[in-house]
């Protein structure tokens, strides 16, 4: 590899569509989520930092970074330090798989969809370890709940992803995306899978109605109750990047990813714009779901997932199987 192409690749990883771009996108998505949620509730939302409060997530992030770093007595110090880092690095790694500026992601290899789904599960397991590492009653219950929730939503999520893969006859994200040149899968037979994916994503991101692991009114902050300062900032950023990842994955799997009408020569820019528009559409749906429901109880979530989401996902799978 020549020095120039090496530098080009390095710049891609660091700036676009690498770390810096993902960081900006994560903060922007959090802002959009908060602002849209506020609009739905007839409020104003973030307002003062930057135009329309667009810099508010950044301000929160910087504020958390500058706070005192507290390690409470009795915590497992190794896990307590490692889990925020793991959570951040895994979510960034997952986001690199997304096809943002072309049909292929920055990282693209045979079978990367499997890795993407596995990473989602890993993120949930890290949540569990983070809760157990801090020796607190609330965090232990929160960790327990995050695991129970995983039992509920993971299998429907996987089946809905598998049916997309079956439709495209591939487990590589880039080939799934390019197979949607004609018809997006949400318009194709995969509308049920999309619904299942939205609910499972909501559970993965721990948002209402599935925000039990950190239910404010019950467990104060749940699994992240002991984390302050830098560690909390990392967790929050990781959550936002996960939000970008899940919205992007839904866009890639069901909405044709970055595809759209293009002018030759400007493909990377147009692809990026299409990708952001589509994933923000998914984000808007996620926000409406957050505003629409009350929080469910843990047993209700598990029974909802097994009684409704799983059969829906299986029906989806059978439909796709019969069509091919």
């Amino acid at each position: 590899m020549s020095l120039e192409s090496f530098l080009f690749e390095a710049l891609k990883i660091i700036f676009f569509p690498g770390f810096v771009f993902i960081f900006i996108l994560a903060l922007f998505y959090e802002w959009f989520d908060r602002k849209f949620y506020a609009k739905l509730q007839n409020r104003v939302g973030p307002l003062y930092a930057g135009p329309l409060g667009i810099l508010q997530p950044l301000a929160d992030f910087i504020k958390l970074l500058s706070k005192e770093d507290i390690v409470p007595k009795g915590v497992d110090k190794v896990l307590f330090t490692a889990t925020p880092l793991f959570s951040l690095s895994l979510s960034i790694f997952a986001t690199l798989l997304l096809p943002i500026f072309s049909v292929k992601g920055l990282l693209s290899f045979e079978g990367d969809l499997v890795i993407a789904v596995v990473l989602l599960t890993f993120l949930c397991i890290i949540t569990f370890f983070a809760g157990v590492a801090s020796y607190n009653r609330f965090s232990i219950i929160g960790a327990e709940r995050s695991f129970l929730q995983l039992i509920g939503y993971e299998i429907p999520l996987m089946i809905s992803v598998i049916s997309v893969a079956l439709n495209a006859q591939s487990v590589t994200i880039s080939s799934i995306v390019s197979s949607q040149k004609g018809l997006w899968y949400i318009l194709g037979p995969n509308i049920l899978g999309f619904i299942v994916f939205i609910f499972a994503a909501q559970a993965e991101l721990e948002r209402i109605p599935f925000d039990l692991p950190e239910a404010e009114q019950e467990l104060i902050a749940g699994w992240n109750i002991d984390y302050t300062g830098r560690r909390l900032a990392m967790f929050r950023l990781a959550k936002n990047i996960e939000l970008v990842f899940l919205c992007g994955l839904a866009a890639a799997l069901f909405l044709g990813g970055p595809l759209g009408p293009v002018v030759s020569g400007y493909e990377p820019i147009l692809y990026t714009i299409y990708f952001i528009i589509k994933s923000i559409f998914v984000l808007a749906i996620l926000t409406i779901v957050r505003a629409l429901f009350a929080r469910l109880r843990i047993d209700q979530i598990v029974s909802l997932s097994w009684k409704y989401l799983l059969p829906l996902a299986i029906i989806q799978f059978l439909i796709v199987r019969l069509m091919i």
Binding site: K39, R43, V44, L292
Partner: peptide, 21 residues
């Protein structure tokens, strides 16, 4: 049942905000 809440949500999206700054 969900639709009645959803329509209220979307109606409020285009309403003037209730907050007085």
């Amino acid at each position: 049942d969900i639709m009645s809440m959803l329509s209220e949500l979307l109606r409020n999206l285009f309403k003037k905000r209730a907050t007085v700054l």
